[in-house]
Design a protein around this nucleic acid. Sequence first.
DNA 1: CCTCTTTTGAGAGCTACTCTCATTTCATGA
DNA 2: TCATGAAATGAGAGTAGCTCTCAAAAGAGG
Lengths: 218, 218
Amino acid sequence: MNAMTAARTPRPASAPRPGLRERKKLKTRLAIREATYRLIREQGYDATTVEQIAEAAEVSPSTVFRYFTTKEDIVLTDEFDPVLERELRQRPADEPIVESLRRVLRHAVAFGFADEPEEAILRTRLMIEVPAVRSRMLESMSVTGGILCRVIAERTGKDPGDLEVRTFAMGLIGALTETTAYWAEHGHKEDLAELVDRTLTVLTTGFSGASGPGSMPS
Amino acid sequence: MNAMTAARTPRPASAPRPGLRERKKLKTRLAIREATYRLIREQGYDATTVEQIAEAAEVSPSTVFRYFTTKEDIVLTDEFDPVLERELRQRPADEPIVESLRRVLRHAVAFGFADEPEEAILRTRLMIEVPAVRSRMLESMSVTGGILCRVIAERTGKDPGDLEVRTFAMGLIGALTETTAYWAEHGHKEDLAELVDRTLTVLTTGFSGASGPGSMPS
DNA sequence: CCTCTTTTGAGAGCTACTCTCATTTCATGA
DNA sequence: TCATGAAATGAGAGTAGCTCTCAAAAGAGG
């Protein structure tokens, strides 16, 4: 899931030794992101201009846009999707997809949150406070949705382009995003992993009956 | 649903006679929108500047932004949400929400599509082609989601802020949005109402088993 | 050490969007 | 019908995100 957890860049297992060039690029990327986080924390999102970010990171504004296509991307960009896909594929093929998601997300949440709790919190806060960030983040969801489609299709033998597969996947993503929003709106106090659990339960068991006649009298 | 169908402005039943001022405002609004649609059809979304739109609609650029807060809004803005809410409330209180949605949406789709098929098609096309439009449209979904929450909460006696209610609603919205995207990506050839039907069926019956073990062997 | 390639910085330029203020246009009551 | 108040408009300046180009700087490789 994109902005749900962390924005770390998982080191690929095969690191044949990055040259000086690559190392510098990574450092610049980190510098920009850290400067951004700091400035936003100090003065808010809108008040922070790309020019300020560039200055704080000691690069030119051009360079900032070379590394991140939009300002929102500086906050949101993560490389979590491939991780999600890989981990989902590692689950047994006969496990229901919702169950796989439950496991994978629980693990991801625990991991990402333990690593950089402050950034995860800032990110989700911006996601509900700053329209531009929210938009961008919703956008990235459709990418994640596409991945889900592929995994689902693989397990069921269906086509990833099937209406049923696609709506199923986006339904999941939509619900999980809302879970993150809920978490953020409640001050990040509750346990995100547990919230995700409850959401997935609703999706599997309560979806059809959640508002049926007399299913929940007051 | 927001950009799913039409962007008409439903005349409120109680129209005690709009003054000249109101009528003019409505005319300008329409002029801006029509000019926008025409220009976009002719030269594409990005190539069309607000200045051009203003000139074509014979107003000043300031006025354009007075009527629509963003350029994307000119294409997307509709007043469909209140209609959706009203119609949903008119359904019997003991009807499952998914069933109510099925009815209401089928009606809305037929209605809106018969009225302005070209605009509906252009809108959904832009929604998958232009990132900015897609973003804005995803954004408006959360508003629609809020409405759904209220209706669901009313029927079940739950709190509209409940995690379960919210994720359920956003799951629905996410799936339905994907349905629209599917429709647009396939050249608007299939019957949207039927696609919506299939989606809702997936959500109620197939959601839990859609990818369960052996639920669909190739 | 020299050359080739990649990365960077500087700067001009476009456009969406905001804000202010003077002017025009409509509504209302005398 | 006209005067007064309120609302809508236009003009214009300004901000900032984002793009593009081109020349200078910095790593990589022989």
